[in-house]
Design a protein around this nucleic acid. Structure first.
Length: 436
RNA sequence: GCGGCUGUAGCUCAGCUGGUAGUAGCGCCAGAUUGUGGUUCUGGAUGUCGUGGGUUCAAGCCCCACCAGCCGCCCCA
């Protein structure tokens, strides 16, 4: 058997690759308007970075990383996410010395060794952004506003949200299933979360035995996950469990309140979901997620949150509070849907040796004018036009002995079939005009 | 990592209770007189039937293992 792409990886081919390009271009443009700048970090790092940053006990670190030992014995890991790397770079280059809130974005592949499924790959792509250097809830709201802007600009519609706070997202435009849906929560801080965890564990001791097998297990391994259980019979019990939002300390409560206020000011619809749990240890206070109905089981398009303690956990002496998100680009592209690749402007068919000799320079001129050109290598005009048609070319450009004798170029509009003989000067103008 | 389903030409698929692969549709290639496509007509190419074993006189169809994809769980983007 021939060599194939390995499990969980894939080739992104045209025309789908053009959707990826568009999504990335839109993201970059939106980020620019919020004054975010690109950061490119290495694709592998010392394993310890992720172990400490993401958290030893998370599934990501515990069983999903691609880790190997380098020749000198250091343990290296293909990055499973980028926030830890951005923070590492921030600390390493003393970016805290730059005034104001530091804003970075990245686009690139991440690696997690999970069982592949639709919307979940072992090499997948994230578009993410981080705002570091401020604890202000205004930054939280702005980050969320920015990512919502990316989704909208890419053509997604907001879904009808249950406890909708009035909105310019125009929720009536789409049916609940189809659009995207912003979920918001606060998971507290190092002061208040332990209290909540204690009461939650306490309660679970009593109720867990009546719940599903998964929940009984989670009750000890990962109590927060119980809140996220989808088994119908468990829902009644879950409703009786304490909510993190009732256990926030005063600072966290205030912070969360202000985030919501600012989202309302901007008319961004959201749903508060006290059960929203994130799988990375570094999250605190604000967490959020956006789901999209068209995706199936892996319906989360992006997730994010605040990570004020991350810098310290990877060894920084200076605090570096921050908030960020990452978009699952593979999933975003899926929910955007297919698009057709822009067709070539001109399919150029030179016929005969004299035309061949002139062809190169003419192609160069057209391209220099911004016109895309495919030069035919077929000898027969009939064949050339067939190919031009199949490619969806807008124009066929014919140059043979007849044209050379009269000093013209025959331009054929493939849609209408009309042909005109033009001089060299008229040629570029003609094609450009109709191109717009 | 666990469970279920699936795997036949480039794509979508057919293949009856095991008998030696289908003129299938789309696509591709070549023709239907000399420099004109999109419609039409004619002809053609392509498959180690996911891979490797096993049962059988005989396997695309049955059994086992592996691989890959999809769906669900877990988790997350």
């Amino acid at each position: 058997m021939s060599i194939r792409a390995i499990k969980g990886t894939r080739d992104i081919l045209p025309p789908t690759s053009s959707v990826w390009n568009r999504v990335e271009a839109v993201a970059r443009e939106v980020f620019r308007t919020f004054n975010y700048h690109e950061i490119r970090t290495p694709i592998f790092e010392e394993t310890a970075l992720f172990a400490r940053g993401v958290g030893e006990d998370t599934d990501i670190v515990g069983k999903e990383m691609y880790t190997w030992e380098d020749r000198d014995g250091t343990s290296l890991t293909l990055r499973p996410e980028a926030t830890a790397s951005v923070m590492r770079a921030y600390i390493e280059h003393r970016l805290d010395q730059i005034p104001g809130v530091k804003k970075y974005y990245y686009i690139g592949p991440m690696f997690r060794r999970e069982r592949p499924q639709k919307g979940r790959y072992r090499q997948f792509f994230q578009i993410g952004a981080e705002a570091i250097g401020s604890e202000s809830p205004i930054v939280d709201a702005e980050v969320i506003e920015m990512v919502v802007a990316v989704l909208q600009r890419v053509g997604l519609k907001a879904a009808k949200t249950a406890d909708l706070i009035s909105s310019d997202l125009d929720p009536t435009e789409s049916k609940g299933e189809e659009g995207f849906h912003l979920l918001l929560n606060s998971v507290g801080c190092s002061k208040c979360r332990p209290n909540f965890m204690a009461t939650l564990r306490d309660r679970l001791k009593d109720v867990a035995p009546t719940m599903c097998a998964d929940c009984q297990r989670r009750a000890t391994t990962n109590p927060l996950r119980v809140l996220d259980c989808k088994v119908p019979d468990d829902q009644a019990t879950i409703d009786t469990l304490p909510s993190i939002l009732d256990h926030l300390c005063e600072e966290c409560h205030q912070h969360f309140k202000v985030v919501q206020q600012h989202l309302r000011h901007r008319g961004i619809a959201f749903e508060i979901k006290p059960r929203l749990v994130r799988g990375l240890d570094y999250y605190m206070r604000t967490t959020f997620e956006i789901t999209h109905g068209a995706l199936g089981a892996q319906n989360s398009v992006l997730g994010g949150g605040r990570y004020d303690g991350l810098a310290e956990s990877i060894g920084s002496k200076v605090p570096a509070p921050g908030i960020g998100f990452s978009i699952g680009e593979d999933r975003l592209v899926m929910s955007v849907g297919e698009e057709t690749q822009p067709a070539v402007d001109v399919y150029f068919a030179p016929m005969g040796d004299a035309a061949d000799a002139l062809a190169g320079l003419l192609c160069a001129e057209l391209r220099a004018a911004g016109i895309s050109v495919e030069r035919s290598v077929d000898r027969k005009l009939k064949r050339a036009l067939e190919v031009a048609n199949k490619m969806g070319a807008r124009y066929a450009l014919i140059l043979g002995d007849n044209e050379i004798a009269t000093g013209t170029y025959l331009v054929k509009d493939m849609a209408s079939g009309e042909q005109v003989g033009l001089t060299r000067d008229q040629l570029v103008e003609h094609i450009r005009q109709k191109k717009n």
